[in-house]
Every structure is written in structure tokens, then in C-alpha cells.
């Protein structure tokens, strides 16, 4: 086992363990805090894949914005008495069975993948010579310009929608 594989094994094991903690903790605040640690580990995995900008985005947006939103909502709702009740629904064994079947299914399929498409032009050296952010930006603002604009509209809809939904009365 090379050093990269050893590091990957640590991060993979930590990610699996942390995701199990996220879905099984009773207190939602504990779940959010484990999820923060999980996102830091996923960002480290992006560094493995030479995607520095993705790692930064993962920390800034997921850990910095989305998780804080979750914490705010948990704080706004008074959930003291819910913590003493059951954490799983009655049908949780079916959920577990579906999850296990899905995982086994994908793991069995992965061994069968033999044909991959031909390699693109963005090799590690090509990205390194230009810088990762510049490479991403060039692709994002040329080939993916229309999806980029649509994403900005989606964000606008989310901003307006969140305000309208959470407001008590619209007058």
C-alpha cells in the first residue's frame, strides 16, 4: 500500500464513520457538528483529486453557509421535547435494506466497468501550468455560460422564495 492509498483509506474510513454519525445522532446539533467535520474531510479528498478550488468552495459554501443555515433553523425551532422521543420511523428496517442493496449493487457494478472514454486535454500538468482557478473559469465562462446564468437565476429564486416563505405576512 503506497502512502497515497494509506491517506485515502484514512479519509474514506473517516467519511463513512462520520456520515453514519450524522444520520444516527439524536440531537440535530450534534449531527450538524459531525457534518462539519465530514465536509472538512471531503474537502481534503478534493485536494487529493487536484481540485483546490473545489476544496475551498466546499469549506466556504457547505461549512460556512449551508451548515450555519441548518444551525439557525434548529435554534429557531424549539426542539427540546423531540430529543427524548424515538429517532427512527417505524419503517426504518426497509430504509436500511434499501441502502444496503443500493451499496452492494453499485459495488458489484464498479468491478464490471472496463471501457472509459478517451482522456481529455486537462491533464495534471496542463492544469498546473495555467492554475486551477483559471482553467475552471475558462471552461465555466465559455462552454458552460448558459448553465452558469441559469444557476444565478436559481439562486435569485431561492433568495426571494426563502424570504417570502418564512415571512409571517406579506403586507
Amino acid at each position: 500500500m503506497t502512502i497515497q492509498q494509506a491517506f485515502f483509506s484514512y479519509f474514506a474510513g473517516a467519511i463513512v464513520a462520520l456520515s453514519l454519525l450524522v444520520v444516527t445522532r439524536k440531537n440535530p446539533v450534534h449531527s450538524v457538528l459531525w457534518m462539519l467535520l465530514l465536509f472538512v474531510h471531503i474537502a481534503s479528498l478534493y485536494l487529493f483529486l487536484n481540485a483546490e478550488f473545489l476544496a475551498a468552495i466546499q469549506i466556504i459554501i457547505y461549512a460556512g453557509a449551508i451548515l450555519v443555515l441548518f444551525l439557525f433553523v434548529i435554534m429557531l425551532l424549539n426542539l427540546r421535547k423531540e430529543e427524548t422521543e424515538k429517532r427512527f420511523q417505524g419503517q426504518w428496517p426497509f430504509g436500511l435494506a434499501i441502502g444496503v442493496v443500493l451499496a452492494v449493487f453499485v459495488v458489484l457494478i464498479v468491478g464490471k466497468i472496463g471501457v472509459l472514454p478517451e482522456l481529455g486535454q486537462y491533464s495534471v500538468e496542463a492544469v498546473k501550468s495555467e492554475g486551477h482557478i483559471m482553467t475552471v473559469g475558462k471552461v465555466l465562462y465559455t462552454e458552460f455560460l448558459l448553465p452558469f446564468e441559469i444557476a444565478s437565476v436559481i439562486l435569485l429564486v431561492a433568495i426571494v422564495g426563502a424570504v417570502v416563505l418564512a415571512k409571517r405576512s406579506l403586507e
Binding site: V16, V22, V23, P28, Q89, G99, A103, V106
Partner: peptide, 28 residues
């Protein structure tokens, strides 16, 4: 790894009672 984490998310989505944790499983 991706498949395992996705399945854990599916399990959390189907099994948890707390709607906030259901959303967090979606993020997972």
C-alpha cells in the same frame, strides 16, 4: 466510497423522523 456514503444518505432519508436530519441526509 461515493456509493457507500450515498447509501447512508438514502438510509437516513428513509428512516429518520426529524425533518432537519432528513434534509441533512439529502445534502449527504
Amino acid at each position: 466510497l461515493s456509493a457507500i456514503v450515498f447509501s447512508i444518505g438514502v438510509f437516513g432519508f428513509l428512516a429518520r423522523r426529524n425533518l432537519i436530519i432528513v434534509f441533512m441526509s439529502l445534502e449527504l
